[in-house]
Every structure is written in structure tokens, then in C-alpha cells.
């Protein structure tokens, strides 16, 4: 912890009581963070040690099969669903975000649609899954298969993507749009070339984190995706048995309950799947950070063609005026 950046020379002396209170306050805050870090470390350590205890690389080469040999089919299923959600929820979520931020007139319709999206994010995932089951699996006779699972999962994360898009777009200064128009660009071009491009870090972060959420979901899939211990047959709709989708969270959720005297591999697979999920989620989070870092070259300044030197000068200038700020 660096000494407070705020110089205290010249300030009136501080009494011991105030010093103690000051120390206690920051101590409490630090303890708060410490306690928050505990479950993170504990969960990771728990999953890693449990998975490592009986780790076998064959989980990457074999499907679950009848005797719990591997996880390859569930990995495949989870990746497929991730791609599907990225497509479906991505299009709907980004479109919704664009509309909310760029197209819609402030008014009743916009606040209703925005509100609906937020309320949607508050619906418990099992309820979403059950409605998906009733409407898609049963009533439309789609059977347990990829498409109902994708649709259910997509609407679970659409609100997050929409919100991230809306926020990212609204943070692009109005001046950029006006600048683009002043140059005679069509508005769609302004949106595509300048506004959206400047918002890429925010949008992709939202999208990636939404994917992280979708990868970790169990409840919406239990009654829509079904499960098969073999490989997926490539069909988007059921009712063929092999059209059911295996996925990683199912393994974690159910395999630990299998009698271990009969299938001794089941319990380890439960933790292997948990570990893979954690790695996947962590990977997605790091990817989001990487995207932010890489796309900073598409930050508003760059997108509008300001030279790097000018940018550096501007930054230096800004830093100079706000030197005291610890979080510039």
C-alpha cells in the first residue's frame, strides 16, 4: 500500500484517535477484500485438488460412454452451445443494445423494452428452463435437442449483452458522431465505422462474459438439452436419442451421485468437469481483458484518425493536470 498520495504537509496535526480510526477503517476494508478472496481461492484449490487426485488425460479423447471414460462429448456440446449462444444471443443482444442506445426515441417504448430486458435477467434460470421445456420441447415437439437449449440459454444472457452494448455505445462521445457527419458520412457509416468501432471493447467484453455465464449454467439445460453419453449426431432438433446434447455442467451436477462401487470413474469426472468449467470461465475472462487491451488501439482517438503522437501528447497533458488522481 503506498502512502496516501495526498501530501499532508501543512495540514493541521492529526490526533491519535483519528489516526486509529483511520487505520481501523482501511483495515476493515482490506479485511473485507481478504474475506472475498477466500472463497475464490478455496473453490479453485478444492476443484483443482479433487480433479488432480485422479486426473487422466483420456477425458479429452473419450466420450462419457457407458462407463464414464471421458468428457469429450460434453466438451464438444458445451463448445457448440457456446458458439450457438454467441451467434443467437450476440445478434439479439447487440441489436437490442444498438436500438436502445442509438435508434430509439427516449420514451415509453424504450423504457418498457429496456425494463423487460432487465426483468428477464432476474428470472430464475430453472423457471426459464421449464418454460423452454413446456413451449419448445413438448409443445413444438422439438424433443430434447440443441435448438431448444440454445434458445433458452440465449434469452438467459441476452439482457447482459444488451446492457453491455448499450453502455458501451452511450459512452462514445456525441462529438465523434457529429464529427463523422460533418465529414459527410452517412449515419449508418458513422455508426459502423466510428461509434460501433469505439464501442468494440465494451461490447465484446459483455459478450464474452455472457458466454462465461452461459457455459456455467445447468438449470436451463436440464429440461431442454437432455443428455447423451455418446456424441451428438449433428441434428438441431429431436426427437432422436442421439440429438440430445451432452454438456459439462450436467457432468458436475449428476456424476457425483453415481454409486462409486459400480462406476468408480464417475465421481472424478464430476470434478474434472468442474475444473474444465473453471478453466473455461477463467479463459473467457482473460480473453475479455485481452480484447480490451488489444482494442484500445481502436479507441475513439484512433478511430477518428488522430495521430499516435498527438494522442500521446494529449495523454501526457491530461495526466499532468490530474497527477494526483490515483486511478487516472
Amino acid at each position: 500500500m503506498p502512502a496516501a498520495p495526498y501530501a499532508r504537509s501543512g495540514a493541521p496535526p492529526v490526533s491519535t484517535g483519528r489516526r486509529v480510526r483511520n487505520g481501523a477503517w482501511w483495515g476493515l476494508c482490506a479485511a473485507g477484500f481478504g474475506l472475498v478472496a477466500v472463497p475464490v481461492v478455496w473453490v479453485i484449490a478444492y476443484v483443482v485438488t479433487k480433479a488432480a487426485a485422479s486426473w487422466s488425460w483420456s477425458i479429452f479423447t473419450k466420450p462419457v460412454g457407458a462407463t464414464y471414460q471421458g468428457l469429450l462429448n460434453t466438451i464438444e456440446g458445451t463448445f457448440l452451445m457456446m458458439v450457438g449462444v454467441a451467434l443467437i444471443a450476440g445478434v439479439i443482444g447487440i441489436g437490442t443494445g444498438i436500438w436502445l442506445s442509438e435508434v430509439a426515441k427516449p420514451g415509453a417504448l424504450r423504457s418498457i423494452l429496456r425494463g423487460a430486458s432487465e426483468v428477464l435477467s432476474g428470472i430464475p434460470s430453472i423457471v426459464l428452463g421449464y418454460v423452454g421445456y413446456l413451449a419448445l420441447v413438448v409443445n413444438l415437439h422439438w424433443g430434447y435437442s440443441l435448438l431448444p437449449a440454445l434458445i433458452t440459454l440465449s434469452f438467459l444472457v441476452v439482457p447482459y449483452i444488451a446492457k453491455a452494448t448499450e453502455l458501451a455505445l452511450s459512452q462514445v462521445p456525441l462529438a465523434y458522431r457529429e464529427g463523422g457527419e460533418a465529414l459527410g458520412m452517412r449515419r449508418t457509416h458513422v455508426l459502423g465505422r466510428i461509434v460501433l468501432r469505439s464501442a468494440i471493447p465494451g461490447i465484446s467484453t459483455g459478450l464474452i462474459l455472457a458466454l462465461a455465464i452461459s457455459v456455467g449454467e445447468t438449470a436451463p439445460l436440464l429440461y431442454t438439452a437432455g443428455f447423451t453419453s455418446g456424441y451428438w449426431d449433428g441434428a438441431f432438433l429431436g426427437p432422436a436419442a442421439t440429438s440430445q446434447m451432452p454438456y459439462l455442467t450436467y457432468a458436475t451436477w449428476t456424476f457425483y451421485q453415481v454409486p462409486t462401487t459400480q462406476f468408480k470413474n464417475a465421481l472424478p469426472l464430476s470434478f474434472d468437469a468442474a475444473l474444465l468449467l473453471m478453466v473455461l470461465v477463467l479463459g473467457l475472462i482473460l480473453l475479455a481483458r485481452l480484447v480490451v487491451r488489444l482494442t484500445q488501439k481502436y479507441s475513439p482517438e484512433r478511430a477518428t484518425g488522430i495521430s499516435r503522437a498527438a494522442l500521446r501528447a494529449a495523454k501526457a497533458n491530461r495526466l499532468g493536470s490530474a497527477r494526483a488522481a490515483p486511478q487516472a
Binding site: T67, G226, S229, P239, F263
Partner: peptide
């Protein structure tokens, strides 16, 4: 395709492994 009882499920898995009479079964 099969789904249901968790008590019965392990037996379906045993059966799945041998693919009796050439019939594949996919249990849950």
C-alpha cells in the same frame, strides 16, 4: 432414448455398453 429413474439408470448404462441385439440406447 431413455430417461428417468436414477436407480435404474446404471443398469441402462451397463446395457448401453454392450449394445444388445445391435440396438443402441442413450440413457439419462
Amino acid at each position: 432414448s431413455e430417461t428417468g429413474s436414477t436407480l435404474f439408470y446404471p443398469l441402462f448404462q451397463e446395457w448401453q455398453a454392450v449394445k444388445p441385439l445391435g440396438i443402441a440406447v442413450s440413457p439419462t
